[in-house]
Design a protein around this nucleic acid. Structure first.
Lengths: 227, 227
DNA sequence: CGTACATTTGACATCCTTCAAAATGAGTGG
DNA sequence: CCACTCATTTTGAAGGATGTCAAATGTACG
């Protein structure tokens, strides 16, 4: 399993949709979902392959005690509902109003039987998801709270810059609770870490949902990706 | 994304090798590697698809400060080296003497071009790995040290029982440091948690590398998988 | 302008880590 | 078989980072 260690930290996986899958979902229907709604829950029958057209969602899992672990954030171009099982292992919730394309799994299977590229594309999307999942494991397992937040900001910057030119002003489409549920932190710790990064001069916080990166190198250092 | 929530906690993914991949690796060569050796490192060119025949290995990633995060343990039947990239994103190290089957990626690609089932099998193996990775993320992100250790023991029990009949005596082919590097804990915390589980009567520790499960329900409770 | 909700800040408790030392166990040679 | 050595594990004490509980501040929207 594999990668280029010099690649910018990518906590997120499902980017740059393979065209064969885009063609596929475009054969299906388009749906609109309001903010903070549940698309499907853990354990629901797996029925559709979705592609995000607009908006932000999360895939998450809940513990018996009700704690939520967000496994990934989903942005336009990302796929949801790839599975090799009959039911969903993660729940999907919208953070904002979303537009989604979807096709029934039966259509997916028909197409895959005829076109081996579908399998290849599914493999690749699953692989990207796995890369992101491992990145998250590493971030949660080995980094301090401040490092996790710094890593998260760099990831959003990278992602919002189209995976090529990191943006210096990062938009946060999710609340502090969502960030905490992603990084294994409480909402208070998330808030305190933002404050620390601000006080260290790495970033500015022009508003609750915006972060301006003032010193990329220092932020990368804080994220524990250099030195 | 998908699963059956009632499935026993499975921290590990690459089990029950698809026959099409087994056939493939059997076309290649058999190699033997001593204990505590590096099969390949992060960043090395990805050359082979391996299948574990005998022994135990880990896939891991190191931080710039040298901390190791083990992403998965590998047991007989597991595959290593599935990738969609030119270099390895994880390093592979043996814990014990290992026997491995391997084929060059070029053979894999040739076969995949002719037989779409190869892609399907790779998707499935990647998917299982992803399931395990998410399980680990959840364990590290949401559980206390004792819960992590309890979850880990249940996973080994499940795995060593062939995914069907959990064993009541669990063998630990890895040291405390390895367990810590997997669960995001220090070696001391791992040791203390074993002691706590022993004192609570859940388990007995007949030797350093053996755990006897005395009370499965209590252990499951400690692992935070019930109630 | 006022209400409701999200975020930030503060004080304190808890869990895990760190550093240090003792105990256990495996391997080797006497 | 026993003694010695080295590595690993366990235990102890203290410190630090994050969680918890509570209050204050900030922000969005009617």
């Amino acid at each position: 399993m594999m990668s280029n260690p010099t690649t910018p930290s990518a906590l997120h996986p499902l980017f740059r949709a393979p065209s064969v899958l885009l063609d596929l979902v475009q054969q299906g229907e388009t749906i609109k979902v309001g903010a903070h709604e549940t698309l499907f829950s853990e354990g629901d029958p797996a029925q559709y392959l979705y592609c995000v057209a607009e908006g932000t969602l999360v895939l998450s899992r809940y513990s018996v005690s009700g704690d939520r672990q967000i496994m990934t954030f989903l942005f336009p171009g990302d796929f949801i509902g790839i599975t090799f099982e009959k039911s969903a292992s993660l729940g999907a919730e919208t953070l904002s109003k979303c537009t989604l394309l979807r096709v029934d799994h039966s259509v997916l299977e028909d197409q895959a039987a005829r076109d081996p590229d579908v399998w290849r594309a599914l493999s690749e999307v699953t692989w990207r998801f796995l890369r992101g999942s491992m990145e998250l494991t590493f971030t949660i397992g080995r980094k301090s709270a401040v490092s996790r937040i710094a890593s998260f900001l760099l990831y959003l910057s990278f992602r919002q810059g189209g995976f090529s030119t990191p943006t210096l002003v990062v938009h946060l489409p999710m609340g502090r609770q969502d960030i905490g549920d992603f990084l294994g932190l409480t909402i208070e710790t998330v808030s305190r870490c933002f404050t620390k990064l601000k006080e260290s001069g790495c970033v500015a916080l022009p508003s609750t949902d915006e972060v301006a990166i003032l010193n990329v190198e220092e932020l990368r250092m804080a994220a524990d990706v250099i030195d």
